[in-house]
């Protein structure tokens, strides 16, 4: 029945379609984007108030607090990654589409990053200012946050896929994701601390970049497998 007038979607068109759709959905429902961002901003601004105005203490705790806030903000938003797709039947359609499911899973994770991770990276310089971090560390912090949030979106998509069929799977999602996210948190926060102390940061950045690449290549396959199981 294939007609000459039909369009034949290539291998990337499914990926592009999913990213475009999810970003469009986020645009139409800005609350979903703003919630984690607001959470991130709240934590990062409340901490300096609680710790006190001493610049030394703020600089000492700043990188850790910003990174924990970023991690929690990402976890907060990951819950709903596949939930609405599962509930409205879109997930069935995605699984039954001729597009490779790992690519669609990658698209979901990238769309999640575009709508939560990227805004978070973009507002992070404001947080750096509230913690009185040296200006030179801001770019390093943003770079580590880029690698970190991309990794978190990808790792989180595995957890979200595993728990999508469960009611109240959010606690389980955190349990699944947190052990995998620990290296990101440790290296991310430590690299920013080192940058603030004018120390060598290359090793930390390389590690985060490598972790991000590993997540980019492997996580979509794990997510796809998990989706097939959870969607029974």
């Amino acid at each position: 029945m294939t007609t000459a007038s039909g369009n034949h979607p290539g291998i990337w068109s499914g990926l592009v379609a999913v990213i475009r759709r999810d970003v469009l959905l986020a645009w139409k429902r800005p609350g979903d984007v703003l919630n984690p961002l607001f959470f991130f901003a709240m934590i990062s601004t409340l901490f300096p108030l609680a710790i006190g105005p001493s610049a030394e203490q703020l600089q000492f705790s700043g990188p850790g607090v910003v990174w924990v806030a970023a991690l929690l903000a990402a976890l907060l938003s990951l819950n709903s990654l596949f939930l609405s797709d599962h509930e409205d039947g879109s997930l069935d359609q995605l699984i039954l589409s001729p597009q490779p499911l790992p690519l669609l899973a990658l698209a979901k994770a990238l769309a999640h990053w575009l709508t939560t991770g990227l805004p978070l990276v973009l507002v992070s310089p404001l947080m750096a200012i509230t913690f009185q971090m040296p200006a030179g560390t801001i770019s390093i912090m943003m770079l580590t946050l880029v690698f970190g949030t991309v990794s978190l979106s990808l790792l989180g998509s595995i957890g979200a896929a595993l728990t999508v069929g469960l009611h109240r799977g959010s606690a389980l999602l955190s349990l699944v994701i947190l052990p995998l996210a620990m290296p990101i948190l440790i290296f991310g926060a430590r690299t920013v601390s080192l940058a603030a102390a004018d120390d060598a940061v290359a090793a930390g950045i390389y590690f985060l970049a490598a972790y991000c690449m590993l997540a980019l290549t492997l996580a979509p396959f794990a997510t796809a497998a998990a989706l097939r199981i959870s969607n029974e």
Partner: peptide, 15 residues
């Protein structure tokens, strides 16, 4: 918008 999304997933005839 929904149908356009579908056309990215599978072979379809938008004409």
């Amino acid at each position: 918008e929904n149908l356009k999304f579908e056309s990215g997933l599978r072979d379809s005839d938008q004409t």
